[in-house]
Computed example of a mutant assay.
Amino acid sequence: MALRVTFVAAARSSSLLAERFDDDRPLDQGGWDEVLRAGGELLPLAAAELRYCSPTPRSRATGDAIGCVPLVQLALRDCDMGRWRGLTLGEAMAREPAAVDAWLADPRTAPHGGEPLLAFITRVGDWLDTRPGEDGDRIVAVAEPSVIRAALVYVLKAPPATYWNLDVRPLSTATVTGRAGRWNLRFEGASASRS
Rank of each mutant, 00 (worst) to 15 (best):
E188L: 12
P57H: 11
A94F: 08
Y154R: 14
A119H: 15
A11C: 05
G181C: 09
R182Y: 08
T130G: 15
E115L: 06
G125R: 07
L166W: 04
R182S: 13
A2D: 15
G178F: 03
L128Q: 03
R123S: 01
G189L: 13
V168Q: 04
L74M: 07
E188R: 13
A190K: 12
A98P: 05
V100C: 10
R25K: 11
A150K: 03
S172K: 12
G133T: 02
L166D: 00
E144A: 14
G178I: 09
W183G: 06
Q73W: 07
R149H: 05
D28R: 07
L104M: 12
W84P: 06
S195Q: 12
W32V: 13
R108H: 11
V155D: 02
A61K: 04
E91H: 07
Y154N: 00
T56A: 15
P97C: 11
R12I: 04
L36D: 09
T88N: 12
P107V: 01
A65R: 04
R51A: 05
P97Y: 13
A98H: 10
A65Q: 03
A10W: 00
D80W: 05
P111K: 02
E91C: 06
P159A: 15
D137T: 08
R169M: 08
R4Q: 13
A158H: 12
A11G: 13
P97K: 07
V153T: 10
A119Y: 01
S13G: 15
L166Y: 07
W183P: 02
G82R: 05
A158V: 07
E19A: 14
R149Q: 07
R60S: 04
R179W: 10
R60E: 08
S15D: 15
D23L: 10
L152P: 02
L16Q: 11
P159M: 02
A141I: 04
L36F: 09
A151T: 11
D33G: 08
G30L: 13
E134R: 14
